[in-house]
Design a binder for these strands. Structure first.
Lengths: 126, 126
DNA sequence: TCTTACATGTGTGTTTTACATGTATCGACC
DNA sequence: GGTCGATACATGTAAAACACACATGTAAGA
């Protein structure tokens, strides 16, 4: 059994920390990277930290997410055998993916405003 | 039963929307409200939208969260029978709760920076 | 041959959130 | 005096999001 759950981990903030991650942030992050240029999973995995920072994305979940995005036709992919080494699945964003990204951007802007309000209210009565 | 899963709900953004909520945002929100003044659950439920906006908090989850916070001694409570109507459980923030709130604030600031970087990068290659 | 980096995945448990429901007090209104 | 709505606090359970562990294979280089 687990001695103490991750809940207590987060609250013993001396050692561990509260992250305040945006839910499913990996999704817009992937769409943004793919809008800049097509890429394969492992490549995205390495570039994601530029956007996610401390809020890392699990490798396993990344690959699952990519396939889920493809199922919904937000990205498309094809196997790339050209370069040496193991075959890669090369992903590209679709028009539907670009439209969803736009909606994520709007939602993230609203999220920024909410958090800004919170922080202002915190500072007000310091 | 629901014909289509919530995943598609979110992606058919014409009708439904991406929210980009901060994970467990209800927790710092409650702590902030309680730092301003002690209050009971139903009262907090009504004041939460000032902070959470569109990202509403479920009543059931709110009461569970309050009890979890109390178990970790981040808030304290006592029954209040004085006023008319059903008895209320009056919550107050503890020193440990105030320290955790401070850590949430720092995490939220880092979250703001991450999201700002994301939005800037989006706008750059519009 | 053994290790390391590249590359893509599956299995499964834990945590977080959503949705539905249950219980009880009390004032207002008919 | 009955029932409606607002107040007030909860539990049960399902689903979604996320974490952790592991499996599989290619290829370069020590």
């Amino acid at each position: 059994m687990r001695g103490r759950g991750p809940r207590s981990r987060r609250h013993h903030h001396g050692r561990w920390s509260v992250l305040a991650r945006v839910e499913r942030f990996a999704e817009p992050a992937l769409l943004l990277l793919l809008r800049e240029r097509p890429a394969h999973g492992y490549d995205l995995l390495e570039r994601l930290p530029e956007l996610t920072g401390e809020a890392r994305v699990e490798m396993g979940n990344l690959y699952r997410l990519l396939r889920a995005l493809e199922e919904e036709e937000l990205v498309s992919s094809e196997w790339d055998d050209s370069s040496p080494g193991p075959a890669k699945r090369r992903y590209a964003i679709t028009p539907a993916g670009e439209r969803l990204l736009e909606h994520w951007v709007e939602a993230l802007q609203r999220s920024q405003e909410r958090t800004a309000r919170f922080l202002t209210r915190y500072e007000e009565r310091r």
